[in-house]
Design a protein around this nucleic acid. Structure first.
Lengths: 230, 230
DNA sequence: CTTTAAAAGATAGTGTTACTATTATTTAAA
DNA sequence: TTTAAATAATAGTAACACTATCTTTTAAAG
């Protein structure tokens, strides 16, 4: 049985749909590899074109510029992750168990998903950790947001927020806690590997400790006894 | 009484010390203004030179490139904030009160500090929210880290970590919680203003709600009853 | 099997960015 | 008053971020 997973992307993310052609798929595949290798700053359409064996102009027919390409791959990642979440939490009743599963999915290295041949999810995960926030930390956020380019991220955040509310219906900050979980899963990973003294996992470099930390944080808050102290 | 606050910066951050000359101070002042106006991506040494009334080559005598300049102003900010923390928590005994004060300092807009004439801290605070993480989210982190360029950030993180331990000596993740507080104070602010659906403060756009959220999160964790549930 | 259109490839060109180098002028200390 | 340091002025280069145009290939439609 061979199943190919297709994620429908917002059309504003590209000029020509990359999944519709060989060249398009090569662009995605190689841009992930190149960005992973040398980082987004050093990544250029020229290098990408050389890696693929096409020309700069060829890439520009698919993506307006490299920032839009980054937007595309991050949006793809969040969509894919939402699918992963749906898949792995399916049939789980207890919202606490669900939420733990989600934290684990967020904070743990992913394996390459065979259902998407032109994308290496484990590389992508690494990229999102380092480059993901650059997709929105720009002056064009609001503009990009109006084009709904962050919808996958927001959908995932909303979904996690709802599960948080299932755990504790009167919790006041489901969305903020949700975005905190997402961001911290990545930031703590980046810090652990690059600025270890900002974390408590610098020695072990063990992702499961990030899971423990986030679980501790989240469930302390959600299991908190009704207002007495403070 | 007029007191000027001087922060000693790591010499690797610059080629020529900007606080030692008028031109240098202008570079800092105007770069903060320009980055605040149009963002770090759009910021160039040419524009900066024009704004100051000098030449590109003039700027290059002070800073190797614009990334180093960003490193400089972020490092300056964290040093200044550590001083603020020391100042505002001085004479406070209760570590919980201290920690609350720190959360408030991190998450709340700062007023311009008159003791530093060439720097507008309120603009700087805005810059750090949007551009701060770009200082370390690069391929050069480890290299920059070896030059101790992140020391101010790490010092602040360690300081907060110690106060966390004062609150709860057996807490397992003081450093991770500390970096989480710092990052979330900024990220939730960015989200609140730019991608409000990722937070629960999109309506009010009230910074004090960020303070409440972070306090809730932190003190749930620190007041957590000794292992029983979960 | 041929026409036609779309996609891709090849090539060239432009303005901007990120620098480096050189020389002249100002300023400020010896 | 000399001298050195800092600054200003100017020029130049390689890479980057595009845009334009034209030709060839490919693939669908008639």
């Amino acid at each position: 049985m061979e199943i190919q997973l297709q994620i429908k992307m917002n059309e504003k993310l590209f000029l020509r749909d990359p999944v519709q052609s060989e060249l398009g798929k090569k662009i995605i595949l190689h841009s992930i590899q190149l960005i992973h290798q040398s980082g987004f700053e050093a990544f250029t359409f020229k290098k990408l074109a050389e890696a693929i064996g096409t020309t700069e102009a060829g890439i520009y027919r698919y993506f307006e510029n490299k920032h839009r390409l980054l937007m595309y791959i991050t949006a793809w990642y969040w969509s894919w992750l939402e699918y992963q979440v749906a898949f792995h939490t399916h049939n789980i009743q207890d919202p606490v168990v669900k939420l733990k599963k989600i934290i684990q999915l967020l904070a743990t290295a992913v394996e390459d998903d065979v259902a998407t041949s032109h994308i290496d999810e484990s590389l992508l995960h690494q990229i999102i950790i380092t480059e993901g926030s650059k997709a929105y930390l720009t002056r064009k956020v609001s503009e990009d947001n109006k084009d709904h380019l962050f919808k996958p991220y927001k959908d995932l955040c909303a979904k996690i927020g709802n599960i948080i509310l299932e755990c504790k219906p009167d919790y006041q900050y489901p969305k903020s806690l949700s975005s905190t979980i997402i961001e911290m899963a990545h930031f703590q990973n980046f810090f652990m590997n690059n600025l270890p003294s900002l974390t408590d996992f610098g020695r072990s470099k063990d992702e499961s400790e990030i899971v423990n930390f986030i679980e501790n944080l989240v469930f302390s808050s959600l299991n908190r006894p009704a207002k007495t102290e403070e």
